[in-house]
Structures are given as structure tokens and as C-alpha cells.
Simulated assay, not measured.
Amino acid sequence: MNEILEQALLYDFYGELLTSHQKEIYEQFILEDLSLGEIAGDAGISRQGVHDLIKRCNRTLQGYEDKLHLVEKFLAIKGKLHDINRILDEYEAAGDNAGKLVADIRKISDEIIEEL
């Protein structure tokens, strides 16, 4: 998984556990894609201060994931749901006469994906 996606997922799951100042800076860097200099200018701190804060946030969020594994579980469930959809596609393509069953399972699978 690429680093930006991983950081965004960690923030989605554990971001509320950061202080408001940390959340503000981290959101600007990860979600808004602002540079260290832009963030430093807005926050009135040095580029190095922004860099250190982002590194500290990354370590904190990764520490939560190491203990709770919520992102790992989320990605595993999402992968299994995609497998269900792939199998349903194959079943549907085989021309079996269970279209209603396939449609019902696909609907439930899609609802779970949307909730995740």
C-alpha cells in the first residue's frame, strides 16, 4: 500500500486521538497536500517544527494501529468482500439460474463495502 494512502487510513481510524493542533497540521500535510513551508507559514512555526510534528503524529498513529489493528482488519474485510463479488461475477457468467440469490448477496456485499 502506498505511504500516503496508509497515512490517510491511519488518520481516518485514529485521527481523533490526536490533539487539535496535531490534527490541524497533519490534515494540512496529508489531506490537503500542503508543503512544510506553507504549513509553517500558516501555523507560525518552523519547517523543522512541522516536520517533527508530522513524524511524531505518524509514530503515534502507527502505534495505535500496532496495538488495535483496525486498519488491518478493515482492509482484510474489504478484500474478502471483493472476493465475494468476484465469485458472484463468475457464478453469474456461468449462466446459472440463481440470479435473485446472486443479486441479494451482491446487494448485501455492496452495503458492507459502503459502510466500510
Rank of each mutant, 00 (worst) to 15 (best):
N2C: 06
A103H: 10
T19Q: 07
L9V: 09
G49N: 02
R56E: 09
N2K: 11
K55F: 07
Q7W: 06
L31T: 02
Q28R: 12
E72N: 10
H69E: 11
K78L: 10
D89T: 15
A94K: 05
L5P: 02
A43K: 13
L34I: 02
L88Y: 09
L53C: 14
D66W: 02
L36A: 05
I84D: 06
V71R: 13
F74H: 15
D52Y: 15
D83Y: 08
E115M: 13
L61C: 05
C57D: 01
D33G: 09
Q22C: 01
G15H: 00
Q22G: 03
I108F: 13
Q7C: 14
E72L: 12
E16I: 08
V50L: 05
E90L: 05
N2S: 12
E38R: 08
Q28H: 09
L10N: 06
I105T: 08
E114R: 13
E38G: 06
A43C: 03
L34V: 01
D12G: 04
N97F: 01
E3K: 12
L10T: 08
T60D: 02
Q48T: 15
I87S: 02
L34M: 09
L61P: 03
G49I: 01
H69P: 00
D104V: 04
A103F: 05
K23V: 03
G49H: 00
